[in-house]
Write a protein that binds this DNA or RNA. Structure first.
Lengths: 215, 215
DNA sequence: ATCATATTTAATAACCCTATTAAACAAGGT
DNA sequence: ACCTTGTTTAATAGGGTTATTAAATATGAT
């Protein structure tokens, strides 16, 4: 592998290594870990299956790399939203909007993460070791908690546990995208109708959360 | 297969056929379709793998049977909750409570249904043909819609689209259980703590939905 | 006791899967 | 031109997978 390569943006790089990574990601997203084979990945890339193993040695390895990157990117969005210095209401609005936009760009992400965490204790352990323990991620939550408590003491918003607020926002955001294939298919919606639906749902979620937060 | 069998309750019946079904359900729930093999099912039942195919011919067949039963049972709960003749607020409270209780008894159900519907267009088509079209299920939704509109015209609750209200309740209920393994594992909670958490979350969801519905 | 019917097993065909190995091929440096 | 290093392929070991088949075993009815 050429480590002198100036281009480090993996998505822009079209080397075999990154093409395998990209195709693998797409297939893991669509089908999950168990239903995706290295043979299928190779076929879709247009190389031999041995090459997939040459670069990543095992399927589990390839998966983990993608998995961590995705989780990291997702947590990044959550972290950034907390940097807002505006009023709490504006911050909540901005945060929800940011989540919706991030997931609109990557609608399969919630399911991908869920699938591999729900029925895989080993991966949850891996996640706990690599992220939840990390001070930076603990800090993000504590910051959110402090800010909420502060607003409550000032009487500007209603009493609600920080964890409950977080879960409520996560629920409504994530579930919108989890149920999207059902929405589209069962109600026979076009892609453009789905886009409108997401925007409309975003507005509605913001409205509802604001109402919940009213003192 | 003995069709004269008086016992029709499948869970109480310990014939090989139903034992296979029960074990298969447990494994499909825990691991999903792709990660579960008929060999594993047979091993857990204590019979040969050929027997699994003798009764159900294909793995897909066995899966579908379980899948339909579960969806049917889930929709049953939704339907029943609408029979309530109490005030709208009481009805909402009762409905959410019912969903939470149903899922507490069967916490893997949301993920099981999701897993197989999200990345399987073929199963979504199957579901649409078998359920969404059925007049009884259309009726359930229309009943809910009519009742909500009626309350709104009377000025007793705030303006909100029936679909949005339904999605909101579904989001918060379903997501609680989807995220349960993460909650338990990442925060190192005991089973009893998890139980308390579910109850607490149920109360909170009811409280929030009521607040959203306030005029 | 016999016979039909239902249940269960052993054996196997015909795959597909992961991972490794050795050999072929490219490209750049000297 | 040659050698080194990195890339890619063909071949294959050693599994596991679904599904079918024929043969063995139970069960119940007559």
């Amino acid at each position: 592998m050429n480590m002198d390569n100036i281009i480090t943006d993996k998505t822009a790089n079209d080397s075999m290594e990154s093409r395998i990574r990209d195709v693998a990601q797409e297939l893991f997203f669509r089908q999950g870990f168990a239903a995706t084979s290295t043979t299928q990945i190779a076929k879709e890339v247009g190389c031999t299956q041995a090459l997939v193993h040459y670069y990543y040695r095992t399927k589990e390895n390839l998966f983990r790399q993608i998995f961590l990157e995705q989780i990291q990117a997702a947590l990044q969005v959550v972290g950034e939203s907390l940097l807002s210095q505006e009023s709490f209401d504006a911050f909540i609005e901005q945060a929800i909007s940011l989540y919706f936009d991030a997931l609109t760009r990557n609608p399969q992400l919630p399911f991908f993460v869920l699938e591999e965490l729900v029925n895989n204790p080993e991966r949850r352990r891996y996640l706990r070791e690599n992220f939840v323990k990390k001070p930076s991620y603990v800090m993000i939550y504590m910051q959110f908690e402090a800010r909420l408590k502060h607003e409550q003491q000032a009487g500007r918003i209603a009493r609600i546990e920080p964890f409950d607020l977080m879960m409520t926002i996560a629920s409504m955001t994530v579930f919108t995208f989890l149920s999207l294939p059902m929405y589209q298919d069962l109600l026979s919606r076009t892609d453009s109708q789905v886009k409108d639906y997401i925007l409309q749902r975003k507005r509605e979620v913001i409205r509802m959360v604001k109402k919940i937060l009213k003192p």
